[in-house]
Design a protein around this nucleic acid. Structure first.
Length: 811
RNA sequence: GGGAUCGUAGCUCAGCUGGUUAGAGCGCCUGCCUGUCACGCAGGAGGUCGCGGGUUCGAGCCCCGUCGGUCCCGCCA
């Protein structure tokens, strides 16, 4: 590689028509080469942007020769005059699209091998590939933007906090394990065998100590570590903007945070106006079902417990009588009318996955009310009351969940977000910042069977609730606050306890006795007695904040070198094993928990392989010898072509060769159905089920055969079996719906036909059958409409015509 | 710990209830081309179908296991 003979004078993105005529020298990567045979265009990219270079063979031959060897991502430096592009060749899309450079000197500084992925496709490339080649991924404009934005945000925050009198203090990374909270990362101490440092989950105790040390206002862009399972918004190491102030209260901390966030948002081009809205915790849980409400859309949760208590519907009343709640979400008519049965099914499934026992629904209207079967349990007056409590009008749809208070909030809270997203109710242009306050100080952990702090045990209870610490800790509120941005918690904090006696009482409330407290937090208790000022603060999740500001879906995109969900760094291959020497030095012995016993090939397997090979050879050698499969394939061809008799013949041949082939039996059964030989079909298909009880084809065909023989109960039985085996297949639903109709189960049949019509709305037979089901259910008008629709789609549908005629006559 | 989902050419994906020689677009290579800007045109190369078992005469497809990615629950502020 040649020595660097040129020196960079400008950045590509900084050039503009103002530079026309200037001699400049720029350096960067070859973004793209466009070789026209004569002219060669190079787009040169550096951290600031792109600029087009041109080589003309009739101009500088040497430069043109170099240009013809350039490939993507080569690193070059070029010197030349900035010139105006010829008229008509400007590129308005590009900032530097009106200018270009004809270099008189170019040097290749480095070559590059073929990239593992193209930049243009990077956003949809498998993330593992991007992470493995992170050095290339970060080169992309989008990633550069994220890195830049993150820098600008932290810079703005530092600058703001500096002006507000905060000083940045670094706290230890090697520190002490804490009993509460997340799992710690441990680091062995070589100098003290058998003892361990822990990486900090946050600098909480240090920053409180700093307050006691007389640091008036502290902040730190602090790395934190938690050894818990990862998510799209959770990494094992992450960054907090951690701050603490002495002689302060909630309002001051909130005001500082608001000022800080305003600066951070400004950097991302978003204008937010403090003071932000404040909402008590209880209201959030009540109306939004969680402690991080997304207020960008309405659809709040309504309480109908009072109705549940007085109504006759046992399912609801029992829940209410046992202290549970009946709550619901009310979809306005304009949304409700577009909700399909399938969508409701999905919601019910969703609710169950959230842990709900069920999701009831009802659509209000004048006369027949559509519902999940609950409407009939309520009198017209009760329906009215229901509408009043839910502030519902006719046409609105109410989704109801009855359960204990926490479960109802959980299910409806998630349901609300799910529906909000699905129906696109969220106003993406909004930037809602919201304070949540009046948190409970403690909660009961079902898992650990003990009381624990909601925030952390250093949070001060509200003054008026201090006596509740011992009496009713669950009713004790904390001086804590969270900051929520568009339904995401981006930070939280509290006013701390600054008095030893109170701190000890708080520890006791969560079962930490004096001894444990002294062992784990002795220094803090000591410090609290040594002139601790009142203090409080907050921590902001920087990764999450930047992720949201950058419009990204994962914090991995705003962390330069993130870990995968299993905690690995695909670029460095961390974590990796340590050498025996290293471990010995640390007095650590690794205990293997699981050894994978890989089964070894045995000789019989190899023999089998040879036998298989021989048979294959034999079979190919005698071409005249036809196998069962040959017949099956041929039979299917005939079947597809509609020649059922020929198909039947081939399937029988196949069956002769393999009498226990479920495939052959199935095929024969199906073709016999087509030939209307139902008795034999039934016989054959029953055999198929014995051979392969898990195949869905046989029961489906059996259902058809029984239906044809008007053995309706049997037909329904096998249709249901088909649904069990292949619930997602339309043909299963088809079989079921036909069987249901034959058995006069009109209501379910109606649902099934409607479901099928969602898949294919232009199937006239489906409309015709739906009509019949509707007729059976007594909905004459709806039935007539379906038949008309069927005839409209297929004027040859005589069955529909007949039914329509007949219905009109009986009218 | 659990659930869902993905893994086929360098990349993104298709691959029919298991059946001849596994395809497409982009990229790459070669040739042609003087105003391109996702340049264009013509041709070409490129595959242990993640890995290991099993079922089968036959597996990219079915079954079991395993590794890896992603999303979620639990866990975690």
């Amino acid at each position: 590689m040649k020595e660097l003979v040129l020196t960079r004078t400008h950045y590509a993105g900084s050039l503009s028509p103002n530079n026309i005529g200037n001699s400049v020298c720029i350096a960067g990567w070859v973004d793209v080469r466009r070789d026209l045979g004569g002219l060669i265009f190079i787009e040169l990219r550096d951290s600031s942007g792109k600029i087009q270079l041109v080589a003309d063979p009739k101009g500088n031959k040497a430069v043109h020769d170099i240009f013809s060897t350039l490939k993507s991502e080569y690193v070059i430096i070029a010197q030349g005059k900035v010139s105006k592009r010829p008229d008509g060749s400007n590129n308005a899309e590009n900032k530097t699209g009106a200018i270009e450079i004809y270099p008189d000197q170019v040097q290749i500084l480095n070559t590059a091998k073929l990239l593992p992925f193209q930049f243009s496709e990077a956003e949809k490339v498998d993330e593992a590939l991007r992470l493995k080649h992170r050095f290339i991924d970060l080169r992309r404009e989008q990633m550069q933007y994220c890195l830049n934005l993150r820098h600008k945000v932290t810079h703005a925050i530092r600058s703001y906090l500096h002006t507000q009198g905060f000083i940045e203090v670094e706290t230890p990374i090697l520190t002490k394990a804490t009993p509460e909270g997340a799992r710690d990362f441990l680091v062995p101490s070589r100098l003290n065998p058998g003892t361990w440092y822990a990486l900090p989950q946050s600098p909480q105790l240090f920053k409180q100590t700093l307050m006691i040390s007389g640091v008036d206002r502290y902040y730190q862009i602090a790395r934190c570590f938690r050894d818990e399972d990862l998510r799209a918004d959770r990494q094992p190491e992450f960054t907090q903007v951690d701050l603490e102030m002495s002689f302060t209260d909630e309002d001051q901390v909130m005001a500082i945070t608001e000022g800080m966030l305003k600066e951070a948002f400004t950097v991302a081009g978003i204008d937010v106006k403090p003071p932000f809205t404040r909402m008590p915790y209880a209201e959030a849980v009540d109306k939004y079902g969680n402690d991080k409400p997304d207020t960008r859309f309405d659809l709040t949760i309504k309480d109908l417990t009072s109705l549940a208590l007085t109504c006759n519907f046992k399912v609801f009343r029992l829940v209410a009588e046992n202290g549970g709640k009946l709550k619901g979400l009310c979809l306005p008519a304009n949304l409700a009318q577009n909700i399909s049965r399938k969508q409701i099914d999905n919601w019910q499934e969703f609710a169950k996955n959230c842990g709900a026992k069920g999701l009831a629904w009802i659509v209000f209207s004048e006369a027949p009310i559509r519902s999940s079967g609950i409407a009939q349990h309520f009198s017209p007056e009760e329906i009215k009351e229901m509408m009043r409590l839910a502030s519902a009008d006719n046409g609105d749809m109410l989704l109801l969940v009855a359960d204990n208070q926490a479960q109802v909030a959980n299910v409806l809270g998630r349901m609300r977000l799910h529906i909000g997203e699905e129906l696109k109710l969220i106003d993406e242009s909004k930037h809602n910042l919201l304070w949540l306050y009046d948190f409970p100080a403690f909660e009961y952990s079902e898992q650990d069977k003990k009381m624990q702090a909601v925030n952390h045990p250093f949070t001060s209870p509200k003054m008026e609730d201090i006596d509740l610490l011992e009496k009713e800790p669950l009713k004790c509120k904390a001086r804590a606050y969270d900051i929520i941005y568009n339904g995401v918690e981006i930070g939280g904090g509290s006013i701390r306890i600054h008095n030893r006696q109170l701190q000890e009482r708080a520890f006791k409330a969560i079962g930490i006795d004096d001894e444990t407290a002294k062992e784990k937090f002795g220094f803090l208790l000591d410090a609290l007695e040594s002139g601790a000022p009142p203090h409080g603060g907050l921590a902001l999740g920087l990764d999450r904040l930047v992720m949201l500001l950058a419009g990204r879906k994962s914090i991995r995109d705003v962390i330069a070198f993130p870990k995968t969900q299993s905690g690995a760094c695909l670029m460095t291959q961390a974590p990796s094993s340590a050498s025996a020497e290293q471990l010995a030095e640390l007095n650590i012995e690794f205990k293997k928990t699981k050894v994978n016993n890989v089964p070894v090939h045995n000789s019989s397997a190899i023999v089998m392989l040879f036998v298989g090979l021989l048979i294959t050879l034999l079979l190919t050698a005698c071409g005249s010898f036809k196998t069962a499969t040959d017949y099956l394939i041929a039979g299917r061809e005939y079947f597809k072509a509609g020649d059922y008799k020929a198909a039947e013949k081939d399937f029988r041949e196949a069956l002769k060769r393999e009498p226990k082939s479920a495939t052959a039996l199935n095929n024969l059964g199906v073709v016999l159905n087509e030939l209307e030989k139902y008795d034999e079909a039934i016989d054959v298909l029953q055999q198929a089920i014995v051979v392969d009880p898990k195949n869905a084809i046989a029961p489906r065909a059996l259902s058809t055969a029984y239906l044809a023989k008007q053995m309706n109960k049997e037909a329904l039985l096998y249709a249901e079996k088909t649904m069990e085996l292949a619930p997602s297949e339309l043909s299963s639903h088809q079989a079921l719906s036909d069987a249901l109709l034959a058995n006069k189960e009109y209501k379910i049949a109606i649902d099934e036909y409607r479901y099928l019509l969602e898949a294919d709305a232009d199937d006239d037979t489906l409309h015709e059958k739906l009509g019949e089901a509707l007729m059976g259910a007594g909905e004459k008008d709806a039935a007539l409409a379906q038949w008309k629709k069927a005839i409209e789609i297929n004027p040859q549908n005589n069955a529909a015509k007949q039914k329509l005629e007949q219905a009109k006559k009986t009218n």
